[in-house]
Amino acid sequence: MKKWNEYLWIFSAVYMVSGFFNILFAWIGLICFITPLLLSIIGKGKIYCNSYCGRGKLFELLGGRLKLSSNRNIPAFIRSKWFRYGFLAFFMTMFTVMIFSTYLVFSGTDNMKEVVTLLWAIKLPWNWTNTSIVSPWIAQFAFGFYSIMLTSTILGLITMFFFKPRSWCVYCPMGTMTQAISILKFGKKAK
């Protein structure tokens, strides 16, 4: 009998699709940001990654069971500290930029931009749902956050395809952060 958490990939898959129907669903993704951090802050280590991350399970399913992964070994530099923390820093910079543009819309300095950007450059051609029911900054955050979620999913799928199913987890910023928090909490890595 499969445990309930084995089905969490459905959550991730539905989430990724839902944004195309209504961008405001992007807000739900904050759960995947806050939960892992809180869990590691209270000392649960990487239990989110180890047991509950829907995205990890989605890659396991696509790359493992559906064999969409070439199962090659990942180049050693990707698991190096430099790359992992470098990618985390890059990611956090992008996140801050996104928060800042949300702030600019909130303060009325900028107008809301209805655009989802892939890999920080490609604008997705899509007729996004009307968001006039909410304040512009709420919509702006949704667009920015969804761009980040979509971009990281695509990076994850690419690495899944070229390497092992969960290769994204080697440099996933959430995974790096939760591990870093755990190291801070429980001391340096042994051995």
């Binding site: 990487k46 180890n50 698991r79 080697v170």
Partner: peptide, 13 residues
């Protein structure tokens, strides 16, 4: 190699 392990939990599973 615990120095480079990312603690993803795939092996455990």
């Amino acid at each position: 190699n615990q120095r480079e392990c990312v603690a993803c939990g795939v092996c455990e599973k």
